[in-house]
Amino acid sequence: MRAEVIIRHAAAEDIAALRDIFVRASLVNEGARELMAAHPEWFAWDDAMLPFTRVAVAGERVVGFASARPDDGFLELEDLFTDPDWMRQGVASALVADIARRGLRIEVSASPDASGFYESAGFVAIGMAETEGGPAPRMCLEAWRGS
């Protein structure tokens, strides 16, 4: 990473940065651009996720975030986004490791564009899920693998 990245709980003053990263990171993937054009409502940050969100901060700048909410004995990874200027700098990996420290299994319906990242982070495919954007790999990271 270019600078030291600190992971902390998200705060209300981070919401503008979360919205910005969410949209800009989504636009990096061509398939997401098409979905965003067709369904802009899918690409709106949900303020209700704030209590479940961790942010990666470099200096004073939010450079990524992850939202994982409890769901029947595991954590559902709802969001994992990195500022495009910070991609491939270890931000997403640091956020996944931070969530894994909670000691619960993490599950995600991965976009096909992100499944390679999740595999490299230790997630394994456990099936397919139907999402608003179509079929997506369902993946899992056991707590012991992420600790």
Rank of each mutant, 00 (worst) to 15 (best):
Ala32Met: 15
Ala32Val: 15
Ala32Gly: 12
Arg33Trp: 12
Glu34Phe: 14
Ala38Glu: 14
Ala38Met: 12
Pro40Glu: 02
Glu41Gln: 04
Glu41Ser: 09
Trp42Met: 11
Phe43Asn: 06
Asp46Lys: 04
Met49Cys: 10
Pro51Arg: 07
Arg54Asn: 13
Val55Pro: 03
Ala58Asn: 10
Glu60Met: 02
Arg61Tyr: 04
Arg61Leu: 07
Gly64His: 10
Ala66Ile: 12
Ala66Trp: 08
Ala66Gly: 13
Ala66Pro: 09
Ser67Arg: 09
Ser67Asn: 09
Ser67His: 06
Pro70Phe: 01
Asp71Cys: 10
Asp71Phe: 05
Gly73Ile: 08
Phe74Asn: 12
Leu75Tyr: 03
Glu76Met: 14
Leu77Pro: 00
Thr82His: 08
Asp83Ala: 08
Pro84Asn: 05
Arg88Pro: 03
Gly90Trp: 08
Val91Ala: 08
Ala92Phe: 09
Ser93Leu: 15
Asp98Met: 08
Asp98Phe: 07
Arg101Thr: 12
Arg101Asp: 12
Arg102Pro: 01
Gly103Ile: 02
Gly103Leu: 01
Leu104Trp: 06
Arg105Val: 10
Ile106Pro: 01
Ala110Lys: 00
Ser111Met: 06
Pro112Trp: 15
Ala114Tyr: 04
Ser115Pro: 07
Ser115Thr: 14
Ser115Leu: 11
Gly116Asn: 11
Gly116Gln: 11
Gly116Cys: 06
Glu119Ser: 06
Ser120Cys: 02
Ala121His: 03
Ala121Glu: 06
Ala121Ser: 05
Phe123Asn: 00
Phe123Ser: 01
Gly127Trp: 05
Ala129Met: 07
